[in-house]
Amino acid sequence: MAAACVRLISKVSRLVHEKPSCITNKAAAFAISASLRRPGRTYGTGREGFREGLSFLLGGRGLGCAFVLGGGFGLYQISNFAIKWHLADAATAPGLETDFKLMLYQYKTCPFCSKVRVFLDYHRIPYEIVEVNPVMRQEIKWSAYKKVPILMVNGTVQLNDSSVIISALMTYLISKDMTIPQILACYPEIKAKNESGKDVTEFGNKYWVMVNDAHCEQLYPEKDSRNEEIKWRKWADDWLVHLISPNVYRTLGEALASFDYIVHEGKFGRFEGFFAKYVGAAAMWIISKKLRNKHNLQEDVRQDLYKAVNDWVAAVGKKKKFMGGESPNLADLAVFGVLRVMEGLQAFNDMMENTKVKHWYGRMEKTLLHNCSPAE
């Protein structure tokens, strides 16, 4: 939560939630959706909601500066991991050459970044992590694309947008006759304006794995399994992520508990810790109310979370371990990546106790743990 909250506190949020734009298959030409409605990102990173909440909370410029310095700089200390190697066994990465190096630029608690990490971990693909400073963003200053996640391949090829990253890498793992640059051409970048008149970047076909008919039958053996995977990947981006912030910061007590954890883990000084916990928590509590209204959630936002999670479990069904059958598919990985960012918080505990997701979630945890373990 630290990185996303700092992005709000710093008033430099430029993240726009990922909205699906088009679909494609071998039998049909690429179709670019005209709809570019782009709701703000989760964890309070929507610009409109933050500005309204911040204006209401702060009022004065002086307190605003203290808010940025105390909350922003302080919170960054916990998320600043610089560069670290992810513990994955390169020798067991399926289909990747030993010199295939990936570097993920991220915010640790961003649901979209979590989705990418889950995918990479599941497929045992080794990667490095660069934790981006959400205030200064110096780590991605070199990039014209200013949102995270960003994935660099061998230091030369840049992949943007979590769903594009996942679809492109999955295509690469299956289709050995295509290079990453060739695959990226299947996901054209589209510049447009959203409903608010803001410039946005969209990507065509981003939920599609570009495989031929033979590979498609192997990857999607059941009828409509491909369409179901696409449907629920889009659902995770378009709906599920919007339930996170309103639930994590549902009450002032929950917001304080979340920031108390951040401050404790970050070992802040007294001044920084005060602003990180109390001012940051108050701001996020107010913003969560704005997000609740924006997305037409119920007064008790837990009910929306419970319904969404139970809808997902019902879609998986009782006869399958995962939506992908015996093994998780891309929809399983996406939903797990989004929900995982709530772990350790009251919202997560309530979700596990009041929905039917526990068994599926447990199976996902075991599968990820097994895949992340060093090969024998």
Rank of each mutant, 00 (worst) to 15 (best):
C5T: 07
S13T: 12
S35P: 03
R37E: 14
E48S: 14
I78H: 00
I78M: 08
N80L: 01
H86R: 13
A90E: 05
P94Q: 04
K108E: 02
S114P: 08
K115V: 00
F119L: 07
R124K: 12
I125Q: 05
Y127W: 09
E131M: 10
M136D: 10
Q138P: 05
K141W: 07
S143R: 02
Y145S: 02
I150C: 02
V157N: 00
V157M: 01
K176N: 05
T179M: 09
Q182L: 07
E189V: 12
I190V: 15
S196I: 11
G197T: 10
T201A: 03
F203P: 01
Y207E: 08
V209L: 07
E229M: 12
I230C: 10
I230S: 02
D237S: 01
V248H: 05
V248F: 10
Y249V: 02
A255Y: 04
S258C: 15
Y261P: 12
G266T: 03
R270I: 15
A281H: 04
A282E: 07
I287T: 06
K289L: 12
N293M: 14
E299W: 14
R302T: 10
V309D: 00
W312M: 08
A315R: 13
M323S: 04
N329A: 04
N329F: 04
V338W: 00
M352H: 07
E353M: 08
N354H: 12
H370N: 11
S373C: 12
